[in-house]
């Protein structure tokens, strides 16, 4: 693991009206690492991801990607940096006026100037990776929620990005598919040597895909450590989160350490 972080978030504050979504977030993503961000609904996970890719501007604090502060960049420079990113939105955000194939093809067309046979072959290859062979002529409206998620994933990795942001990639998928996506996240990370941030509710997925884990609570990072540390920590917020969301994973209430979060496989 290299020392220099690929993405560094420093003292990030963001409010919408008088609602404070982020209240001083500090976070580092190192090269080749998968950072899992856990947290209850509404704690600011999606807002954090949107800041990392420059879709939102911080009220205070900064985001530094590969040594460059996003807030000082021109639109062209920002777009240059964004090409290193792939992002899976929570709601998939597929372009519904285009076919599935065109959705995946768009970044390749726009940034690589690809077309014709070569393009459609590559699109088909990406779709196959997410288990959706032969659906490229369908429209997003004809897909199930889980299929949309997977198309979004195929679109996000189309350009073989260095940094991949996943906003709840497995939410809404059946366990088997979720497992496949987890595998895919890991294999993509290995193949591309990408660095990823995975936002999820799913502890199992967190332990399976993650090297580092951050737990967010009410706009702050309540815990940051390795996945192993997650299972042994006495951190109040972590124990609470695990107990609330996955009672089975903690074993008997109060028996801290009795059922480590990551040792227990919810699907086993």
């Amino acid at each position: 693991m290299a020392a220099r972080p690929v993405v560094e978030v420093r003292g990030l504050w963001k409010s919408f009206g008088d609602k404070e979504a982020l209240r001083g977030v500090d976070l580092k993503l190192h090269d080749g690492e998968t950072l899992v961000v856990l947290g209850p609904s509404g704690c600011g996970k999606s807002v954090l991801l949107k800041h990392v890719i420059g879709l939102m501007e911080p009220d205070r604090g900064s985001i530094i990607v590969e040594g460059r502060d996003l807030s000082g960049l021109s639109q062209a420079e920002l777009n240059e940096i964004r090409q290193k990113f792939g992002m899976v939105f929570q709601g998939a955000a597929l372009f519904d006026s285009m076919t599935v194939g065109d959705n995946v093809a768009l970044p390749l067309r726009e940034h690589r100037g690809m077309k014709g046979e070569r393009l459609s072959a590559l699109v088909e290859e990406k779709l196959e990776l997410v288990g959706l062979k032969g659906i490229s002529s369908l429209r997003p409206a004809e897909l199930s929620g889980g299929m949309k998620k997977r198309v979004a994933l195929a679109r996000a990795i189309a350009l073989d990005p260095d940094i991949i942001l996943y906003d709840e990639p497995t939410t809404g998928l059946d366990p088997v598919m979720a497992e496949q996506i987890n595998e895919l996240i890991r294999s993509t990370q290995r193949k591309l040597n990408a660095s990823s941030i995975v936002v999820t509710h799913d502890l199992h997925s967190a332990c399976f895909t993650g090297d580092m884990v951050a737990l967010m609570d009410e706009g702050r990072i309540a815990f940051y450590g390795t996945t192993d540390e997650l299972t042994t920590t006495e951190n109040e917020a972590v124990r609470n989160f695990i107990a609330r969301g996955h009672p089975a994973a903690t074993g008997a209430p109060g028996g801290s350490g009795a059922g480590p979060a990551c040792a227990d496989d919810p699907f086993a």
Partner: peptide, 21 residues
């Protein structure tokens, strides 16, 4: 209506995120 729907379903954000203006 078309662009507005794209905006509220984050399609515009997705486009920006893939560095397409």
């Amino acid at each position: 209506a078309e662009l507005g729907t794209m905006r509220v379903t984050e399609q515009v954000d997705a486009m920006e995120a893939m560095a397409i203006d």
